[in-house]
Design a protein around this nucleic acid. Sequence first.
RNA 1: GGGCCUGUAGCUCAGUUGGUUAGAGCGCCGCGUUUACACCGCGGAGGUCGCCGGUUCGAACCCGGCCGGGCCCA
Length: 879
Amino acid sequence: MSLAGLEDRWAASWDAQRTYAFDRTATREQVYSIDTPPPTVSGSLHVGHVFSYTHTDIVARFRRMSGREVFYPMGWDDNGLPTERRVQNYFGVRCDPSLPFDADFTPPQVGGEGKSTRAADQVPISRRNFIDLCEQLTVSDEREFESLWRYLGLSVDWEHHYQTISGESRAVAQQAFLRNLARGEAYQAEAPGMWDVTFQTAVAQAELEARDYPGAFHRVAFHPAPDASGAPAAPLYIETTRPELLPAAVALIAHPDDERYQHLFGTTVRSPLFGVEIPVLAHRGAEPDKGSGIAMCCTFGDLTDVVWWRELQLPARSVISRDGRLLRETPAWLTVEAGADPGAVALWAEIGGKTTFSARTAVVDALRASGDLDGEPVPTQRKANFFEKGDKPLEIVTSRQWYIGNGGRDEALREQMLARGTELAFHPDFMRVRYENWVGGLNGDWLVSRQRFFGVPIPVWYALDTDGEVLYDAPIVPREDQLPIDPSSDLPAGYSADQRGVPGGFVSDPDVMDTWATSSLTPQIAGGWRTDPDLFARVFPMDLRPQGQDIIRTWLFSTVVRSHLEHGSLPWANAAISGWILDPDRKKMSKSKGNVVTPRGLLEEHGSDAVRYWAASARLGTDAAFEIGQMKIGRRLAIKVLNASKFALTFGGDRGLAIDPALVTDPLDRAMLAGLADVTDRATAALTAYDHTRALEVTETFFWAFCDDYLELVKDRAYGGGAIEISAATASARAALGLALDTLLRLFAPVLPFATEEVWSWWQTGSVHRAPWPVAAPLRAVADGADPALLGSAGAALAALRKVKSEAKVSMRTEIARAELVVPNGSATALETVAGDLRAAGRVVGDLVLVPGPDGGEGVEVRVAELLPTPPKPPKSQE
RNA sequence: GGGCCUGUAGCUCAGUUGGUUAGAGCGCCGCGUUUACACCGCGGAGGUCGCCGGUUCGAACCCGGCCGGGCCCA
């Protein structure tokens, strides 16, 4: 028997039979709904996806067999930067939202894969045209992804799938946003925030990544006012890694308990070079043992500056513009009229418009010349915040942005979010800590606006007053039934197109939403919140969110936020967190390291069941090694399922194995079924608790004992000498084999859907994947109180006989004239009842004597075993 | 610096509320074509449970410290 071709054959059959179709007439109690992670289509799927999606599929299959109507849609994440870049290069275009939609647009090129086109060569097109191209390009990716998932055997209902860039998804994102706005949860604020100068967009806390960044401490002198006698006071030294921000200094700050600076609190000092007078203040955020213990607060060098600025109510003196360069015009506070040094204007003329890097050099040179630099800069490694997709440290820039409240600035809401975390069942449980740490560490609301072109537009316009000033306080919003809209081409009610951008007219909000603002709504998108309330009521709140541990702070948390605000509930009851796939060097597998294996090739080489077995043998939340060896074991298991089943089914002859519990009378058969009943209970309990690994292990261990011992022990009896009229003993063995096979196939079905379905098709009707999950009670009834340990004891006795032959280096077919076994005291009596099977399997042709061993003795010892000459090889049977 | 996870056979991992001699599979060694399976079967060897201390009659497991690996947050 072979596994070859099973994937294609059964995938096609399941599709044709609609095996996994969701019955939307099911009630909420009957439904088990899964909020599947939509993979990013612009990337490629890798083994990590195969790994975690298999975990989800095992849950889906188990719940489906357990009688739940499983809602298991698949989505594609085609929204966001990766798709934007890919479309630019593929079609040679770029998005310019100021342009109108062109219904007859044809892209200048198709298929510029791989090489990036220069921005100057890209044809600017409207947002709507751009989104059209995104949808066009992602179609082929999505077809390929779907094909892979089908080959892997995911029991997804392909009639329910979604895309995050589709009109429906955009409408959901906009509607949810408008509702946040209406309830006061979404708001605009002009505030300092993290800003990526490369992408020129604001960045949210969840997108930050702290990285080591080389810098240098510069020891710089500030000058206190002359003392009463007029003599110059000793300079006050601070240490900074960002001397170019000297013109933005607004205060010097030391710890309130710091003895060294007590006498200076409340006084002022003048900044070197610029001569701006700034206060010396106390704040507990200053670190006494860092540098000189007193820090320069600038607007803004880092997030600590923002805290000081806010809490000490300091003035804003921003010098960095959105492109990461210093302002071109001389700031107002650096003019002589404002009290600055005469040299300040000249210095600014030199550094204005420069990058922070060049400005730093110029300022340091000037400090050195003026004698305000003490010593030379000391190199250091500092942690700087980066946008996770960027390669320049983030600056802090003041801008008008949209936020959604997430508890970062509201203790009551934070408590509610923490309570939601407690309510959510994490698998494994310790993953909740990551959620709690994140929510506890939030330092601001969720920044949802992005200064990008491609994405879901913020669905608002603003009126312009008669001077052309934007009236931000009263955004104009569309009706929900108009969604999705693109405010750059659609019009607000009551305005005409020629009023766009003119005084007394309107302007559109230029920003798009963060991709998480859409991704956080996957339950609403997949469940039909906006357009199919009947479906939504049957699937929401969902039962399960499966995902990776790395996006607890983003995807999981933001989804909880949206659901909490919109529905007053959790989005799902359970969160199953899969681990990473590590390569053999214990490093996370990633494309950049060149160690990614393509999933398609992997599945074709080893078989989907084998790869699924590998995935299933790793527990949730645990990182797993990428191990071909484990897949080979899975492959062996799947093949064994085919072969052992084929063998067992031969005993049924043409009529197949009758599953008639009443026929099971033999003690060994009953013991085997008693053991299987226990296995069924344990596997069921494990799967119910999201522990697929344990369920598989329990089932697999039993199955191998079933093959190696039980099948060997009963095959003679089951064969019954080929007689037409079968004995009760033979009937018992056959019925037990039928019951066991029927149960084992169903227990294995979630992990090995292809092999089990193949065997099922040989002798059963319908799909094993729609068969009911096995229960222990009927098996236990047949077992009639038998001790499951008997199978193990019999197996041990058989192993002892095999060992004799193995050590004598003779064939297992060698007959034994007479044998005496010392067996554990407790099992001697029970073993007598299976002596017939034991003799047959061990080929004991004469007496088989079972001697009870001493009290407490374990294991089987062979006292006597008289081996007969090995019989001649039987003639090769002709196939 | 704080938090979470982790360290058991050459490898990948189990090990339940602490309880006899710590398990499995792979790999390795030896043997064997037994009414399915050579993509097989049978048998065997292989471990100071990261280190140190403590609690206990008893510790892989509980407690403390140290060392190593991974992730998250400062």
